[in-house]
C-alpha cells in the first residue's frame, strides 16, 4: 500500500485520483502507524514551508518521515513536499526544514517583468541522468509547475532534472537513494504524470 501523507498542506484529492486512475491502492493518511506500515510513501504539498513544518510538528510526523526515509522505503516528494526535504527555505522569513537532502530553497527574483511569480504552467525538464521513476519519460518533457520558490541542490549527483525559469536553472527533480522528489505537480501532469506514479508504485527504492 502507498501512504499519501496528509499534513494539512493542501488538497490531496488530485493525488489520490491519479493513483485511482492507474489502479494503484493509495491511502490518504495522517496516522503514524499507517505511514510506517506503508510499502511506499508519497509526500505532497501545496502552501507555505513555514505552515507545512508547523503542521508536521503538530502531527508529530517529522520523525516518522525520518524513520521511513532512513530505512529505505521508496519516498516521493511533490512541490512543497520536495522543498521541505532540503535544509532550509527562504519562505516565511527563513524556515528550517527536514534536512534529508543537502540544499536550500530560494524565492524567484525575476529581472524581467515578463517572468511572473509564481511560475504557473508547463515547463520542460532536462534530465541529467536516468532514474527508474522516470523510465520511459523523454528528455525535455513539459510538466505542470505552480511555485514561487525553487530548490538549489548542494550535491550535483542529487540533480536528476533541471528546469529554467526567471533567469535561474533550478533542480526540478531530485534523487538521492530511496528519495525522489519533483517541484512540478505529477498529479496534474497528464498521462506522463500518471506514468511516473506507475513507475513509483513498482520502484524498489534503488537507483
Amino acid at each position: 500500500m502507498i501512504a499519501i501523507v496528509d499534513y494539512k498542506a493542501g488538497n490531496l484529492t488530485s493525488v489520490k485520483l491519479a493513483f485511482d486512475a492507474i489502479g494503484v491502492e493509495a491511502r490518504v493518511t495522517d496516522q503514524a502507524d499507517e505511514i510506517l506500515a506503508a510499502d511506499r510513501v508519497v509526500f505532497p504539498g501545496v502552501g507555505a514551508a513555514g505552515a507545512s513544518m508547523h503542521h508536521l510538528g503538530e502531527l508529530k510526523l517529522a520523525d516518522v518521515l525520518r524513520t521511513v526515509v532512513a530505512r529505505g522505503t521508496p519516498f516521493l516528494g511533490i512541490c512543497v513536499g520536495m522543498q521541505i526535504l532540503f535544509d532550509r527555505s527562504e519562505e516565511d522569513g527563513g524556515t528550517q526544514t527536514l534536512g534529508f537532502i543537502p540544499g536550500d530553497v530560494r524565492l524567484f527574483r525575476p529581472t524581467s517583468p515578463a517572468d511572473k511569480v509564481p511560475q504557473i504552467g508547463w515547463n520542460a525538464v532536462r534530465f541529467q541522468r536516468t532514474h527508474p521513476v522516470f523510465a520511459g519519460v523523454e528528455d525535455e518533457t513539459e510538466f505542470y509547475f505552480v511555485h514561487s520558490y525553487y530548490p538549489v541542490t548542494t550535491n550535483p549527483a542529487d540533480r536528476v532534472g533541471l528546469t529554467d525559469y526567471a533567469g535561474v536553472e533550478f533542480t526540478s527533480v531530485v534523487g538521492r537513494a530511496n528519495l525522489v522528489a519533483t517541484q512540478f505537480h505529477i498529479e496534474k501532469s497528464g498521462r506522463i504524470g500518471l506514468s511516473i506514479f506507475r513507475n513509483f508504485s513498482r520502484w524498489d527504492g534503488q537507483c
Binding site: 484529492t13 488530485s14 485520483l17 491519479a18 485511482d20 486512475a21 505542470y144 505537480h185 498529479e187 496534474k188 501532469s189 497528464g190 498521462r191 504524470g193 500518471l194
Partner: peptide, 8 residues
C-alpha cells in the same frame, strides 16, 4: 471531471 482528466 477530476476523475477523467489529470491536468489543472
Amino acid at each position: 471531471v477530476a476523475r477523467a482528466i489529470h491536468i489543472p
